[in-house]
Design a protein around this nucleic acid. Structure first.
Length: 672
DNA sequence: GGGATCAGC
DNA sequence: CGCTGATCCCA
């Protein structure tokens, strides 16, 4: 086992120097010599477990190089001459760190307040533009400053370095500046080096990688309802804070780059996937999605009627009115008042009222079925039908989500405010929400999704003959699995058998346990174990792959995707069996989920480049893990469909072909 | 702020 | 059984 695996909580008490007998101080180079840094990272890597609350000093010295503290020279630019000098230096620089200060964390609502810049570590400036508190000093003219910076920010030859630079690029778009040369993002570098870190915000990175405590926004702006927006903050405080951000970003960039240089595969993931994706996500987010407000209103009225009918019925049957949104009250009605049998308990020991439990109770009793229906309609109502219209931007008339690029440990994106990656599709009523995701007049929605991408990746990684064969022949893979496991011919497979086989296939991707499979299929543990055993007999390559993956995880402390993205598993050698098995399931799942994420990200980048200057006719508007959604001019839609499908299938060269299903419609539902 | 629940892949 | 985010209740 390598010495510097990320430590699980269980192992956290073992000091790093216990293993080597060498004092930590001797291990950490104190100079900023790149060669020393390089040697250091080669030896120790960035494998420490870190989060916001942890500082290098608090822990056991850490394996991270703290750059020597440099005397800082931060200036607030209020003078035209000084500004001109900065512009001059920026023009001549190969790259620089940039950070914007604004009035909101919402990129579509935020107003630019000031800009900070740093070309050389320790020397940074803040250019205030719109501080508007009482007696605020005169500031440089915003339009003039932006006009001077625009050619520099738009010059692809001058590299821009930022912390979550997509946000700053959004802000500049709001000012009519399309940032080019987005070269580095310290948040993404940190994410590629260790995706399991809980957060990749600047404060945490500075604390961990620079052993430096930065000024916290709350300290200068206050917190809660009284929190000031940045334009209300005193220039002196604002300058220290903002200039520091740019300076720290540049310092972080140096340290993190040195780390990435030490592993060619990780460097490629960063350079060839994550960085180019920034521009793609920027575009998708700016594009936004058109939502048919009237459609949702209509659906809302229908559902409100159904809801009140169901609620009345539930109150009648249970003999009292109570809050159906409170699991606690439902629990007391069902299990105490009406004395229904308790089939399962929540982790905290409360009788569960979860979907599958109520599903089972619904066979015998009336109320559970009604509660399920109420819950599902209520969810549609509060999360989608009522919420989505509120998310429509007043200026663009569209919904602009945020894709989080440094959140999911496996390499997936996530989507927030609103989450467009969990729009209902499973049930008929839910699916109707997608009818409200529409194309404007003259356009169509084009949706393309990878077919069985994770299973194909499993076939590729495991090189199992039967599985490779099933895909090569273009078989219905769940049916093929059923035929193998139940010893039937393809034609003989029943619907029930196919359903079970599908659950097995999903189980495999999730690092299946007999317990979990049994629960999914509502069968006993032993019967489920039988299925698993038979499966592994028929697919010995898969069995071997699973064992090898777990062993590799134990040996090296991480697993990786087809493209070399890494996921650390600090708990893989834990002594607690539950903790360890959980890590083992993640070890199985992460390479498949993560490789799929890599592949669609690569596809997004090539599609983005293919679109070139044709982005008015064909706009990428959503990504849902294995699906890309576009808004396309009617005249172009067939051509785009074929070309994009080809680019998507070509995004990886696996030992099974990738397949893409495509659909075209007036709305997202029709496009499926 | 944490837990329960449920929407997606 | 893997990975997420939003909403709600309740302390």
């Amino acid at each position: 086992m390598p010495e510097f695996l990320p430590m699980s909580h269980e192992l956290a008490t073992i000091k790093l120097d216990c293993d080597t007998g060498v004092s930590i101080d001797e291990l950490v180079p104190r100079e900023s010599d790149p060669a020393a840094l390089a040697a250091y990272y080669r030896e120790f890597g960035f494998t420490r477990w870190y989060d916001e609350t942890e500082s290098v000093a608090d822990n056991d010295a850490g394996n991270v190089q703290a750059l020597p503290q440099v005397d800082t020279d931060y200036e607030c630019v209020l003078d035209q001459k000084i500004f001109d000098q900065w512009v001059q230096r920026l023009r001549q620089s190969g790259s620089f760190a940039v950070d914007t200060e604004t009035t909101s964390i919402d990129y579509m609502l935020a107003e630019l307040v000031g800009i900070s810049l740093c070309i050389e570590v320790g020397k940074a400036c803040y250019i205030p533009l719109c501080h508007s508190y009482e007696d605020a000093p005169d500031q440089l003219d915003k339009a003039a400053v932006l006009a001077a910076l625009k050619p520099i920010l738009e010059d692809p030859e001058i590299g821009k370095i930022g912390q979550n630079i997509k946000y700053d690029a959004h802000i500049f778009i709001g000012e009519g500046i399309r940032m080019r040369g987005i070269a580095h993002d310290t948040m993404l570098a940190s994410y590629v080096l260790n995706s399991t870190a809980s957060r990749h915000n600047m404060d945490a990175l500075a604390r961990y990688y620079l052993d430096r405590e930065t000024i916290h926004y709350e300290d200068i702006a206050g917190k809660g309802v009284k929190q000031k927006t940045f334009d209300q903050i005193d220039l002196e405080q604002a300058s220290d804070y903002a200039a520091e951000d740019a300076d720290v970003t540049l310092q972080l960039h140096r340290v993190l780059s040195a780390g990435l240089q030490q592993d060619e595969k990780l460097h490629q993931v960063y350079r060839d996937i994550e960085m180019p994706l920034v521009d793609v996500l920027l575009e998708i987010e700016q594009n936004g999605v058109l939502i048919d407000r009237a459609m949702l209103e209509m659906q809302g009225k229908e559902i409100a009627q159904q809801l009140s009918r169901i609620e009345q019925e539930i109150y009648q049957l249970s003999g009292e009115v109570f809050n159906l949104s409170s699991p606690k009250q439902i629990q007391s009605i069902l299990y105490e008042k009406l004395e229904l049998p308790v089939l399962r308990k929540t982790p905290k020991g409360q009788p569960s009222t979860a979907e599958d439990v109520l599903e089972e109770l619904a066979a015998e009793y009336e109320i559970p079925a009604l509660i399920l229906e109420q819950r599902s309609l209520n969810k549609l109502m509060s999360t989608y039908i009522e919420r989505l219209p509120q998310e429509i931007n007043a200026r663009t008339g569209r919904v602009h989500t945020s894709y989080q690029q440094a959140v999911a440990s496996t390499g997936r994106l996530s989507s927030t405010s609103p989450n467009l990656q969990n729009i209902p599709v499973r049930t008929a009523e839910g699916r109707r929400i997608r009818e409200a995701f529409v194309a404007p007049a003259g356009c169509k929605i084009l949706a393309l999704d990878y077919s069985q991408i994770e299973l194909r990746i499993m076939a590729h990684l495991s090189a199992d003959n039967s599985l490779l064969n099933a895909f090569a022949k273009g078989l219905d893979v769940h049916r093929a699995t059923a035929a193998e496991v139940f010893g039937a011919s393809l034609e003989q497979v029943s619907a029930e058998q196919r359903r079970a086989a599908k659950a097995i296939n999903f189980g495999l991707i999730y690092g299946m346990s007999a317990f979990g499979l049994g629960k999914q299929l509502s069968i006993g543990r032993n019967e489920a174990q039988q299925y698993v055993d038979t499966y592994f007999e028929r697919y010995p390559g898969v069995k071997r792959y699973m064992e090898e993956t777990k062993q590799r995880a134990r040996d090296q402390g991480y697993v990786e995707t087809v493209f070399g993205r890494r996921l650390y598993l600090p708990d893989i050698n834990a002594r607690n069996a539950n903790v360890r098995q959980y890590a083992e399931r993640t070890a199985i799942n992460a390479p498949m989920q993560g490789s799929a994420a890599d592949i669609i990200k690569r596809a997004m980048i090539t599609v983005h480049h293919w679109l070139g200057d044709n982005r008015d006719a064909c706009k990428m508007i959503m990504q849902v893990h294995d699906e890309l959604v576009f808004e396309v001019a009617e005249s172009e839609v067939e051509r785009c469909c074929d070309s994009i499908a080809e680019l998507m299938t070509g995004a990886a060269d696996l030992s099974v072909e990738l397949e893409v299903d495509a659909g075209i419609g007036r709305n997202w539902n029709e496009a499926h």
